[in-house]
Design a protein around this nucleic acid. Structure first.
Lengths: 340, 340
DNA sequence: CTGAAAGCGCTAACAA
DNA sequence: TTGTTAGCGCTTTCAG
């Protein structure tokens, strides 16, 4: 903890008043010119804009936000900033929000509700106009805090019958079931799952196993890997699965990176993919199409999730009633390439 | 652009005054209890803290920042949020800043100064207490803006004799030269570079070529790939290099993902690595150690860059003179594994 | 179409 | 140790 010294005495910043004086108008007119230019006649507008240029005026959004009760800030909390899974979503969020004049404030919760609670507490102090969360598993405390502060909330990347507020995602259970049927449909019977330690992956795994059971297949083996999942985890997992007496002929990995590890180890051991083992990933990362063999994987439109989440936040801020912003299931698809 | 409606009439938020009334003290005492608890006697402190709990008070950092002229916000602008290269840096920045009570505000400039200028403009409106940039190539406008607004700035991931303010990085020219000597030292003579389109990678490439020239080697071929670099780009690049009449026996890739692509294509074509071609990556991503063969790569301590950058911002905010916060070269190393 | 007054929620500066 | 006063920079509100 650093000891706080008095703030540096930067020269007093230029304010609307400085601009107003130079333009020969009132502060209000400057404010209007900046925020609702169409409500100011062109002649005045130009004088003000010239004065803004001349004074190098930079609006203070802290003051704007305080007075107007709109920070023009939307917070997004993702499990891992580095994770490529969410980067399309973050990208789309940023872009769509920017078009509407909002900035995105990113936070990383690090999987699990403990980090999320602390982050949420910190974030709310900045008075965001909206909050976007990944996942639907939040602590009681988080739900109360969010419900209490009246900020629009969108949960993403999952579905639940009881969202905090708004919802854009897809069913992880459906993913697990679909991939299981997909592999079984290729005649594979000794299935397995390699799964990172996160709640959504666990949901996919569970449905995968239930579906295997329903299809009369042997119970799939499960190898757990720590998050974040790496290529090394995938290689280890395949070695572990090959050591099993039952053997394995179809593997569902909870990330493409894990799947790439499985492919790498298979190639290293001379095991034919998809001949002897079929491999399915999750995420359709940029490398999936170019892996050897090309990776069959679950494709989710992360950009659409981000875009729709942004639209919902913006809509709610603009006063749209809940009925106009229904929960959205963006679905998923199994993108078939060579590996299965 | 969404039309702005009047802000939602959320119930008036609880303020320091509400807490003060309940605790039977003044607003100032509440403020002190929150910000400098050691300056309030334990008895008072406890009464206030109880009142904070009871009222569910959440401080408004917009107001704090406006009044105290300290937003407790540090902005970081990185070329690509998704890029795993910077994730250690962002992680360390976040952690070190958080310890000192600062939040990190992340922005993505998307390589190239155009995006950076716009983002910078937007960011400064939030009145950050410090700004961390990746790279040292900034537009004239950006440099002026930053110098003018008096905010501490740290440039990172590169070195320059003329930083805007503070600097934590390493020499990309040295990297290019070192890798060239490394490959040449293995007796490889027909060298090549596969490079993403970014300024720092270009600097490494240039030094690589200059060093090859100095060593009396043939001019290395260069294959450019768009950013962000992918495994597919790496595969394509190797195919292109193999089609060259001169041939190739050593390749320096500007990212580990490109290198993984080169390895993949080499394996696919039955080309021995490191036997026939040596491959060196950049970044030491988590997958590098587990690639087949394990990837020799340039390792940079991204976490240290983030940590040191944070220390510099905090130090400058606390009033430390420039002399106490010298430019720092964190260096790099070539992490030798099997691929070269 | 424009401006004057007031105040968002908080803390710096001073006084007691 | 505590409180009072004032005002950060902006925009809401209402009157001209």
């Amino acid at each position: 903890m650093t000891r706080l010294l008095p703030p540096p005495d930067r020269q007093r910043a230029t304010t609307v008043l400085d601009v107003a004086r130079l333009a020969g108008v009132s502060a209000m007119t400057v404010s209007r010119t900046l925020n609702q230019p169409q409500r100011v006649p062109p002649a005045t507008r130009q004088r003000v804009q010239a004065a803004v240029q001349a004074t190098q005026y930079v609006p203070n959004l802290l003051a704007c936000g305080l007075r107007s009760r709109r920070s023009r800030l939307v917070a997004a909390i993702v499990p891992a900033l580095g994770s490529p899974v969410f980067s399309d979503t973050v990208q789309a969020l940023t872009a769509t929000l920017a078009e509407a004049g909002y900035h995105l404030m990113l936070g990383q919760s690090g999987y699990g509700p403990a980090g999320e609670d602390a982050l949420l507490q910190a974030v709310i102090r900045r008075r965001p106009d909206g909050i976007v969360l990944v996942g639907v598993d939040h602590s009681r405390q988080a739900r109360d805090t969010l419900a209490g502060c009246g900020v629009p909330v969108v949960e993403t990347w999952d579905l639940t019958p009881a969202p905090i507020d708004m919802l854009v995602g897809f069913s992880h259970a459906d993913v697990g079931a679909a991939v299981c049927r997909f592999l079984a449909g290729q005649g594979r019977r000794r299935l397995a799952v390699v799964s990172g330690a996160d709640a959504r992956a666990a949901r996919r795994t569970q449905a995968f196993q239930a579906t295997a059971h329903a299809l009369g297949l042997p119970t799939p083996a499960v190898v757990e890997a720590e998050a974040p999942t790496t290529l090394g985890h995938g290689r280890q997992a395949l070695r572990a699965l090959l050591a099993l007496p039952a053997g394995v002929d179809g593997i569902f990995c909870s990330s493409d990176m894990l799947a790439l590890g499985v492919l790498t180890e298979a190639a290293h051991q001379g095991i034919a993919v998809p001949g002897r083992i079929g491999v399915v990933g999750f995420g359709d990362q940029p490398f999936a199409a170019d892996a050897e063999p090309a990776l069959t994987t679950v494709r989710v439109d992360g950009a659409r999730i981000g875009h729709e989440a942004a639209l919902r936040v913006i809509g709610r801020i603009a006063g749209a009633p809940a009925a106009e912003l229904p929960a959205l299931d963006v679905g998923f698809s199994i993108f078939t390439r060579r590996s299965a």
